[in-house]
């Protein structure tokens, strides 16, 4: 499979996750939307962890299985 763009995906995951955590969580807190705040916190961490997951997968793939 063509996965030359995987590094881009990883970076985007981190960036978006970070942005969500930095901006939206705070914003929803200020607007007192509790449910949204919780969701955004989860989504932010999901993106960041997907980024890390992909990175390790890529690392394993390119170092051990290739």
């Amino acid at each position: 499979m063509y996965i030359g763009y995987l590094n881009y995906v990883i970076i985007i995951c981190w960036v978006t996750g970070g942005l969500i955590l930095l901006t939206d969580v705070k914003a929803y807190n200020n607007a007192s939307l509790k449910k949204e705040q919780k969701v955004s916190k989860i989504l932010g961490w999901v993106n960041i962890s997907i980024g890390f997951g992909l990175m390790t997968a890529d690392f394993i793939y390119s170092h051990f299985m290739w």
Binding site: I11, V15, A27
Partner: peptide, 21 residues
């Protein structure tokens, strides 16, 4: 007030992406 910070966020976003570009 809080939505006004969007520009900073955008600037940061681009800042982070500049190494990409």
């Amino acid at each position: 007030m809080w939505q006004n910070l969007r520009e900073i966020k955008v600037a940061m976003l681009f800042g982070i992406l500049i190494p990409l570009l």
